[in-house]
Design a protein around this nucleic acid. Sequence first.
DNA 1: CGATCGACCTAGATCGATCCAATCGAGGTG
DNA 2: CACCTCGATTGGATCGATCTAGGTCGATCG
Lengths: 356, 356
Amino acid sequence: MARTEHRKSGTLPVTPPTLADVAERAGVSRQTVSNAVNNPDLLRPDTLERVRQTIAELGYSPNRAARNLRTRTSSLIGMRFAPAQEGTANAAMDRFVHSLVEASEEVGYHVLLFPGDDEDPVGGYDNLLRSTAVDAFVVTDTYLGNPQAAWLSQQRAPFVAFGRPWHDDEARHVWVDVDGAAGIALATQHLIDRGHTRIAWIGWRKDSPIGEDRRSGWVRTMHANGLSTTGMASRVEDVVHSGAEAAAVLLDESAPTAFVCASDTLAMGVLHTLWIRQLAPGRDIAVVGFDDSQVAQVYPVGLTSVRQPLEDVAVEIVRNLRALLSHQPVETRGVLLEPTLAIRESSQPAGPVVAQ
Amino acid sequence: MARTEHRKSGTLPVTPPTLADVAERAGVSRQTVSNAVNNPDLLRPDTLERVRQTIAELGYSPNRAARNLRTRTSSLIGMRFAPAQEGTANAAMDRFVHSLVEASEEVGYHVLLFPGDDEDPVGGYDNLLRSTAVDAFVVTDTYLGNPQAAWLSQQRAPFVAFGRPWHDDEARHVWVDVDGAAGIALATQHLIDRGHTRIAWIGWRKDSPIGEDRRSGWVRTMHANGLSTTGMASRVEDVVHSGAEAAAVLLDESAPTAFVCASDTLAMGVLHTLWIRQLAPGRDIAVVGFDDSQVAQVYPVGLTSVRQPLEDVAVEIVRNLRALLSHQPVETRGVLLEPTLAIRESSQPAGPVVAQ
DNA sequence: CGATCGACCTAGATCGATCCAATCGAGGTG
DNA sequence: CACCTCGATTGGATCGATCTAGGTCGATCG
């Protein structure tokens, strides 16, 4: 139980020790050292101990390139990294990437980022694949018409998508997604439980399958509670300004007491309109957003928001990637995870809850 | 000028073509193919053309692992990825990582992310270094007492830091940073130009060198314009709540007409206090934040904020990394870049500018 | 007692690229 | 014509690991 870690003291030698160095010093063959690292149960306990001792003394760590060459793997997961769009509140990427990095590390993988090119969406994938630089991909932008998933499938490249193949019935790849409808249902029910009956929806335009899915959660929950949705919905662009306008129109025409929005960006628009009209979020009108972005967290009146379980998504993705890579049969094509609701002031009246 | 890209059509063969395959097909030696890829000027034009043709036909791309093994490089830049802290508005990481990925790609590098471990801050670095998995590192969290820079220096590992070695005069490593003081000076001058004279500062606690640096920009500009700073400053924790409290106290005691804050998080606190007191940001009281976070962008009253030139930072970091790796002498130890000011409504009166 | 077996270990081949030294042929020089 | 230079190309060695096949040795067994 030597607590001192020799391998971490002192400067790194010009050329790190190799497997052969360890073998010679320990008086065994290279293969035995290799086995000590990769298949310890093949060694006799005393030999294993001796080799491990030597490995520690020399500070040996297997050369990645050599191992990669021989095993035809890289222990790298490629992911195209597109930044959050400026002017929107979608900060989910940051959290997701971190979760993915953590989850990958757990099973011995690292995450390699490469830039995206709108003109040549598969170019980055193609390069990495051809040069066998990565073992697999995580595909995040599975929006409509994105050719990446189909292309990767065709290349027989291992990958897992974050996001359902919305319009592609042909798709047979593995995916992990968050049940947006369930999240919005959660939000809607939360408002109903607080006594609201006139709950409006502000979502994205009809050509967004994700937006329509989330909307369905609202419709479903309203109807399940015997509440009407007519005249209570609006579909707009995902910008603050549009959310503000939609809120103003809905307030004038349908007098809702609560808003459920497809995004925090739209919710910010609603809050803006409330502010102009001197209505207090939470007290006068409840507002719920989606994504639990930093905006929702630091806005002075904390914004209640649907929070995607990105940590779980990452874990699930990595789990499926491993299955794919080890050629185990993947039990399911798709996994749908349940979001939670981060409840803040914007949906909580300061005073006592108004009955009905 | 064949516009059709053969290499991108069809599925990938089970094992990608190797250099030897290309050589045989083109009727040249392996070394010639290698030269065609890496030193094209060594080949006679007609040979080069023939080899390139064959490369395109077979869809050949050099195997990364083999190249890495032979050249003892990986074309990978390692970076420890820590997520933005929840509850703050600091979304700079996202933008920076993207910029870094882009800038790296330009010069043939990819970015490898690894998780951080607070208990063993150099563990991740150590592993990657020993296994020669990356060529260099980008170190981002150069806060006080962070041992990474010193440790990497000692290991003679190539790295460039994003952030100055604030308290370490011994440090001889290369760094790139943003001149926070200059950014705040810009913001302060902007407010003075708008006619403000009573400009308050809300910053971080005194043990934050970054915070003190930013503060100095405010002090400097105020004094340069013959304005007083006494009783106009507050130093608090970087949370919304603290910013709100500080603003309330300052408003009561010193009646400022403008606030400059060390972060967007604190600025959100100020906005909260203004909201409670029915004061309109921009019209009644001006507010400026720092980082141009998503919050600043989507807040209904757009928040004027100092914006770090993260794209330039990334480019500069990559430039210095290349110099380090090619053993060219780096001309300077440190690079300081100028931020800009993203001007929005929170510092712009709706009506005409009030003279003096 | 020799054959067989299994646990443990070893030596050589191999992954696919680049480095190195050497070769080959064409052109220039005294 | 012998000698040298130089551009273009080549074949073998090499990077550091793992794979494959095979060897050693003591225990077990007919």
